[in-house]
Nucleic acid binder design. Sequence first.
DNA 1: GAGTTTCATAATAGCGCTACGATCATATCT
DNA 2: AGATATGATCGTAGCGCTATTATGAAACTC
Lengths: 352, 352
Amino acid sequence: MAEQRSIRKRRKIQGVTMMDVARAAGVSPSTVSLFLRRPEAVSAAAGEAVQAAIRQLNYVPNLIAGGLAAASSRVVGVIVPSVRNAFFAETVAALQRDLGRARLQMLLGHSEYDPQTEEDLVRATLSWAPAAIVLTGLGHAEATRAMLKAAAIPVVQIWELGRTQPIDAAVGFHHDQVGAAAARHLVARGCRALVYLSGRTHQDRRAAQRAAGFLAAARELGVPVRHLGHPAPATVEQGGILFAQLLAEAPAVQPLGIGCSNDLLALGVLFEAQRRGRRIPEEFAVIGFGDMGFAASSNPALSTIRPAGDLIGSEAARLIVARLATPELAAPERREAGIIDTGFSVMHRQST
Amino acid sequence: MAEQRSIRKRRKIQGVTMMDVARAAGVSPSTVSLFLRRPEAVSAAAGEAVQAAIRQLNYVPNLIAGGLAAASSRVVGVIVPSVRNAFFAETVAALQRDLGRARLQMLLGHSEYDPQTEEDLVRATLSWAPAAIVLTGLGHAEATRAMLKAAAIPVVQIWELGRTQPIDAAVGFHHDQVGAAAARHLVARGCRALVYLSGRTHQDRRAAQRAAGFLAAARELGVPVRHLGHPAPATVEQGGILFAQLLAEAPAVQPLGIGCSNDLLALGVLFEAQRRGRRIPEEFAVIGFGDMGFAASSNPALSTIRPAGDLIGSEAARLIVARLATPELAAPERREAGIIDTGFSVMHRQST
DNA sequence: GAGTTTCATAATAGCGCTACGATCATATCT
DNA sequence: AGATATGATCGTAGCGCTATTATGAAACTC
């Protein structure tokens, strides 16, 4: 009796494979694959047979296998500081929408404003051989930059433009200009003295840039200005606390112009002023940043600076799709083309 | 001269492969793989050699290949209606944090409250052979349920508990109980008539459940109640509009208890009341839902109902990790163990 | 009508990794 | 000592798919 060779147990992984579809449709697996990728390259008859088989068997293609074979994974890694932050949520939503249209999926990570966490996330994301990566800001650990350069995939840095050269492409705006615009707006509204309220500037370099821009513009205009910051995140509660602190110092000049590093802080100022019976904008003019949902409807309606969070997402998606289609677009000599300033607009409402 | 066989061009995919690491470390690829997955199963000497080689070559493992070989991809698909919604943002953040600790990555999608979009997202996500899937709510297209059952992976449905049987596991709370709690709270605070304000109840079934719970509880308490809804999303602006509409009908009873399907709506009511000089809570008592950042700091501070968004995320992550470790946990007869009620708490503040 | 082009389809060789069994050295038992 | 158990390491066969080449049939050339 012949010794039975030890038969390796086949690990069943997927219910319905491309081979099953091919059998059902009476064609070869190659044809099924081709149909899935370029339907127009397959005859109408074969295409319909494959289509029918796919539907009948409820076939779900395995993109992992596809990605391995094709060396292109149709995922885009997106790393933002925080999804809880409404700014980034808007951009992430636009990104997902527009990437989805190009049949790209989003692998999301949030770094909690920590460069080391970001580096780990980039490493983990690169393990998925992503088609492209979206990062927030221009400031990153050296190792992060090195990994991304080595990966040789499109990299789009969002929400910040500045002197730092982007790794590949960038979509955003100049936060110092936002701060300057806020200062100029307050002065134009008659403020003879300014204060900038912010939170977490040590971690959030974009908030720090807004503060710096505000201070610089005020000085340029010859208006006394100071910066009241706090390491805690910029929340509504924090806005109230900072305003109370400001009142304690009994500012003499009226109206005092208050720039806030975001709308939450500004809303906190509004509430605290109300509680203390201080009038806005007569005694204090307040301008925020973000144009969050409540800004237009608050009482008084909040003047603020509106970034184009949505546009940032869709432009980033557009750049990625374009680069994947024509990789030469990412060539260093075309660098300028990959820097998109989405700008911002000053929304003048009742609080200034 | 011998004919040169046509050499197939090797598509170079990855810079440094496991094989390169193995060579550099003087071990076999199997040992490298084993070290990466279970370092304790490898001798200290071999482990150190591999570690050194990895660092020296800056090796990034290819999880796509790993996923294909192992039939387990270490990604978890997460599908929420919207990341712009602060509720889900909090849960998503917790999920990412806790899944990350188990070295699982998150593939995020948002359905924009559309079942068809959700179905497409589930299909796309399943293409990644995810280790598990997290869905929002218990209501899904039949095809979606079928796909997920067929996929035979852990499925955790979050943010809703109810009569509908979950596909596998569920973490959330009963929205009708939230509505009932709001109604009871208002009545306890002396309201003799109630109104429920909501937006988008036709799409957001959880908002609809809160409304239904509110109405039912009010009727049970014998208090007149009505529902003022609108198809637009529940925003601050919408809150103001609905409150103005309410005032136009000149309600006689004071205080009138106003339940809002979320805090944004409630904030809009607060602002509009202020603008019109109506007193809260004397004339109108207002309670929201969500305990969003501003609720504790608004003027008056907003009474609201706080769901455990963070806890939902971490419990969902815990369930997934447990199920991946011991698949038997997902057996139908253990179904109960996979239903976790994270509850909610009534935050009594100044607005009621 | 033999040669050439065009098009649709099929066969084949991996993509980089993991699971599994096999192998080999060493420790522990009768 | 010889048998057996234990532990570390290695060799191999795919995972399901795509890119590429090969094949065959039909549509053109001159």
